[in-house]
Amino acid sequence: MNKHLLSINDLTAEDVLRILDTAESFREVGTRVIKKVPALRGRTVVNLFYENSTRTRISFELAAKRLSADVINFTTSGTSVAKGESLKDTALTLQAMGADAIVIRHASSGAPLTLTRWVRGSVLNAGDGTHEHPTQALLDLYTMRDRLGRLEGLRVAIVGDVLHSRVARSLSFGLVKMGAEVTLVGPPTLIPPEAPTWGVAVSYDLEAVLPKLDVCYLLRIQRERQRQRFFPSLREYSRLYGLTRERVGMLPEGCLIMHPGPMNRGVEIESDVADLPQAVMEEQVTNGIAIRMALLYLLLGGKAEGVGGDA
């Protein structure tokens, strides 16, 4: 593995399996009364969040704390960043304070890669602009493998605003890497025309895709896209691409329903559908902590076991 995790494409299929297997052993920690191991005692992990995020930040914070690392949450409101400090100066400051790992969420695509030029520690991409969200993809792969027993050959539809979705990019690249069959579904304005070069199929017809799925993965649709005229209205979006109770009936038995959250109930997913037993959003959240523990452990502490690579 590389020193940083910036993109799913930084990982080989073997790396992905090692991360999932490591997460498997860490998931058990979360079931104990004392949910803590000493693996990263004395190491410092900084959560540098330039965008609001509740679940990803808390998930990383819990993961680091369960590994006994010291955790600093650096959010941008009310800090030097709000006073106009540049990413570079913030990075140099964190570097001077001895951050071993920096978890960054940023609205600009590529910001985590840019950050690596200024810090010596590991950089973990917690979502950058419309580029990638690799830890989300890994926790999704974990959840799929955990529930369905395999990744190879799984038929997965990713439905919604693929064009602007960092989750869709990372998940598509990750699934294709692991041998799954991916179909991107959504209005043509929200599917990149070049997407077939990723090794995925594209469909504009959700109902035609549903009967042949193992996983139906829904993306959050943002109201802003309507203002930008990518589609006429949320109502029409929902009519064409929303997962309704009727459409759930078209899914094969055992097909999972997934969503990275936060959900727009009544838009991309009908409220009752979100509460069905095959909708595994809460498991995704739980598994996210184990995945992030595994990543911090492998990037920061796992070298003793011969896991680390070309640091």
Partner: peptide
């Protein structure tokens, strides 16, 4: 827009 629209912009997540 940040770069040429094509295969690379789609992967890099740049408009």
């Amino acid at each position: 827009g940040q770069m040429h629209e094509g295969q690379h912009s789609a992967v890099l997540g740049l408009q």
